[in-house]
Amino acid sequence: MYKIKGFDEFSKELKKLSKNAKRLDGENNVSFAELFTREFMVKYTDFSSFEELLEAGNFIVNSQEDFKAIPDDVFDEHIKSVTKFSSWREMLEKASAEWVEKKLFE
């Protein structure tokens, strides 16, 4: 029997990936701060934080209810004008995908 070079390392990485995937299974509560990191905001928007993006649109958000009260069409227009995304949904989906990828490979 012979050993394939690198197989043990590959196997360890697969086990780690599987463990991380199990942790992500189901519903996850993720804060905007975790989703919209400084790196994400600088890469895709004109701002370094999600709070700055809200302030630039004159949105006053002190609670989840405040955020939910922003009309979708108004927020989509703001997102389209100050980010690389065409809608809030697109921005949220990209941030979520990047968060999942980061968690899988940490």
Rank of each mutant, 00 (worst) to 15 (best):
M1L: 11
Y2A: 07
Y2E: 15
K3N: 11
I4C: 06
K5F: 02
G6K: 10
G6C: 08
G6L: 08
F10P: 00
S11R: 12
S11K: 15
K12M: 06
K12V: 03
K12I: 07
L14C: 15
K16Y: 09
K16D: 12
L17Y: 15
L17S: 09
S18L: 14
S18P: 01
S18I: 11
K19P: 00
K19I: 08
N20W: 06
N20S: 14
A21Q: 10
K22I: 04
K22P: 02
R23A: 10
D25K: 15
G26F: 09
E27K: 12
E27V: 13
N28I: 10
N29R: 12
V30G: 05
S31H: 02
S31K: 09
F32S: 09
F32D: 02
F32K: 07
F32W: 07
E34M: 04
E34Q: 14
E34P: 06
T37H: 06
T37S: 15
R38M: 07
R38T: 14
R38P: 01
R38A: 07
Y44C: 08
T45E: 07
D46A: 13
S48A: 09
S48Y: 01
S49G: 10
S49R: 10
F50M: 06
E51C: 04
E51A: 15
E52P: 01
L54F: 08
E55A: 15
E55Y: 04
G57C: 11
I60D: 14
I60S: 15
I60L: 13
I60H: 14
N62Y: 08
S63R: 04
S63N: 09
S63A: 07
Q64S: 11
Q64D: 15
Q64M: 12
E65N: 12
E65Q: 15
D66S: 13
F67R: 05
F67K: 10
K68Q: 15
I70D: 00
P71T: 08
P71L: 11
P71V: 05
D72M: 04
D73C: 06
F75Q: 00
D76I: 00
E77G: 14
E77C: 03
K80W: 03
K80T: 00
V82L: 00
V82M: 00
T83G: 06
T83N: 06
F85L: 10
F85W: 01
S86I: 09
S87R: 02
S87M: 11
R89Y: 01
R89Q: 10
E90P: 04
M91P: 10
L92H: 10
K94E: 14
K94N: 02
S96L: 05
E98C: 04
E98R: 08
W99P: 07
W99L: 03
W99T: 03
W99V: 07
W99M: 05
E101A: 13
K102V: 01
K102Y: 01
K103A: 03
K103V: 00
K103E: 15
F105A: 02
F105L: 12
E106Q: 15
